[in-house]
Design a binder for these strands. Structure first.
Length: 197
DNA sequence: AACAACCTCAACCGCATCAGA
DNA sequence: GTCTGATGCGGTTGAGGTTGT
């Protein structure tokens, strides 16, 4: 990408791909001043970048413990299941995948998983027309189950076996990244909710 | 080998939300 | 209560790489 103008009065910002030198400067400043006040971080680092751009670069690329590429089968499975439940809430999904960023998961979904899911949906529709019991689609689930009552409890149909506390279930702050217990609880919930895994 | 079509992913944009003045 | 700046999120874009013809 080339240098572009943001408007006649504004200083032109560099919107080209980040260089190793820029990465180094940014990391250095964050080490000293912390990952906050991104506008001043950009200024202090002497980068002709917006605060937003610096934040994004740090969050998606420079941050420690970032995993890149090679999404495992387990991770893929988790993304699929979480997406079934949460939809395009990439940051929430990323919160359950240590070292993965919302941007990476979003990209992975758009380039790999959305196609897989579409194919599955087509197969399921075909199965339905053959007279087998119709499996529930995610849209059905959303329609029927994504309802939070006054007590903050997530409840489905009156007869539905699925009831859980949404806040507790989606509170990723207290528990570590995804624990086996959580995954198992989620899988169980998801299977009952969707009728398939 | 050359070109087109497709894919991937880094980066940007617009909008919503929040906190502080 | 309102304004303003900072931050976070999801959608989208486009450059570069890969694959197919």
């Amino acid at each position: 990408m080339a240098l572009m103008t943001d408007g006649p009065a504004k200083k032109e910002l560099n919107r080209a791909a980040w260089t190793a030198e820029e990465d180094r400067k940014l990391a250095q400043i964050i080490e000293v001043h912390g990952a906050q006040r991104w506008k001043s971080v950009a200024e202090k680092a002497g980068l002709n970048r917006s605060g937003k751009s610096c934040r994004l670069r740090w969050m998606n690329y420079l941050r420690p413990n970032i995993k890149r590429g090679n999404i495992s089968d387990q991770e893929e499975d988790l993304i699929l299941r979480l997406h079934k439940l949460l939809g395009n809430r990439w940051s929430l999904i990323a919160g359950r995948l240590p070292g993965r960023t919302d941007n990476e998961i979003k990209n992975y979904w758009n380039s790999h998983l959305s196609k897989k899911v579409n194919q599955k949906e087509i197969l399921r529709t075909e199965t339905t027309t053959c007279g087998f019991k119709r499996q529930r689609t995610c849209r059905d689930v959303e329609k029927d189950n994504l309802h939070v009552n006054e007590e903050g409890t997530w409840e489905g149909d009156v007869d539905s076996p699925t009831r859980l506390d949404v806040d507790e279930f989606l509170d990723f702050s207290t528990e570590g990244p995804f624990s086996l217990e959580w995954v198992s609880k989620f899988s169980d919930f998801n299977e009952r909710l969707c009728g398939f895994s």
